[in-house]
Design a protein around this nucleic acid. Sequence first.
DNA 1: ATAGTATGCTAACGTGTGTTAGCGATGAAT
DNA 2: ATTCATCGCTAACACACGTTAGCATACTAT
Lengths: 200, 200
Amino acid sequence: MARIIIDKNSSRKEVILTKAASLFREKGYKAASMRDLAESVGVEAASLYNHIKSKTELLHEICFGVANRFMHKMEEVEGEKISPIEKIEALIRFHIDEMILHYEEVYVMDREWKHLSDPYLSNFQNQRRMYRKRFAAIIEQGISLKNIKPIDASTAVLILLHAIGGIESWHRSTQKISAEALTANMISILIGGIAASAKG
Amino acid sequence: MARIIIDKNSSRKEVILTKAASLFREKGYKAASMRDLAESVGVEAASLYNHIKSKTELLHEICFGVANRFMHKMEEVEGEKISPIEKIEALIRFHIDEMILHYEEVYVMDREWKHLSDPYLSNFQNQRRMYRKRFAAIIEQGISLKNIKPIDASTAVLILLHAIGGIESWHRSTQKISAEALTANMISILIGGIAASAKG
DNA sequence: ATAGTATGCTAACGTGTGTTAGCGATGAAT
DNA sequence: ATTCATCGCTAACACACGTTAGCATACTAT
């Protein structure tokens, strides 16, 4: 009889969650079936329900697991005594690290949150809105301090966050540059733009 | 008996395609059912098949319709006698315009192309890869001409294209700035970065 | 008015879905 | 060795899906 193989630090549920994230990323939440998931875990579909409540629960846990990490980081950064630009750079760096380290989960949260069902859906959307508002507030601080040029703050947030989402394509690419080089490039471009400037 | 209402310039199939794009955008390709589509068109599900071959066909036509427009623009821009930076600006502007004008279709192409089936899938992926290569080539020209700072060109392409995809969130936002202001902001940020520079 | 085509309807098909019930096997604790 | 909870299996459920067949209705052109 097959068994879900676990290592010391992760329960059977966590194994399922990891495989689910990978599958949801690959096929999309709706297209990934519980039978697919079962196969990738090495077990029959019904057996999954000894460890999880439902398919939706998997999506909840993935989405909120990631979202909570971002919220936590936001609180941390807001409290630091550094300039707005440095805060933004810290956040970007965190986003990139998260995307590289927890690729599947972050990707799934980004693209599949639509399939959450209420009350989780509204909850998620609220949290997202709040996060962006606080990000925009930091940008606006930078603008009043004249460290950031007078742009529309929420547009800037959109650009930053979605640009980072683009790491998805980097992650798949065969001829990748290193993660460090990628991070350096992104920050350089997002903070300084692509145009050559007098400063260097 | 219900009938699909058409205006002078669009066939019934085109009406279905438009509604399909809107539905695929809202729910995702897999989650949107033919019965949903039928209802939004004002007809029974089976009746759709007098006008279309299959659900997948709808996705093909949406994806390649948009992709072809981008490819065509790329060819046009490549042929113009302007600087690389101007070419990039022209392409960004086109992307933004397309996103604003054909929001649903562009969004669906961007997020739902995974559900294409071969040979359309490989075709699409090839075309996408080519487009990005040609975009990167323009950036590299700009780098050799020292109009663009020495960054990794393919990373820059990722950032640019994904940043534009972020208009999705703008499109939904209640308190939006105008399309012109958005475009100006985006180009300013992407070309010049967010940091205040000596140049102004 | 009539013929022919375009369009729509109802009914149904086969298949895949998430999930549950009930039972057998395994592992841990006494 | 026995007990008890944990875990996995088979079988099946009710339902939603994309799609087809066959027939009825509406429009178009003569």
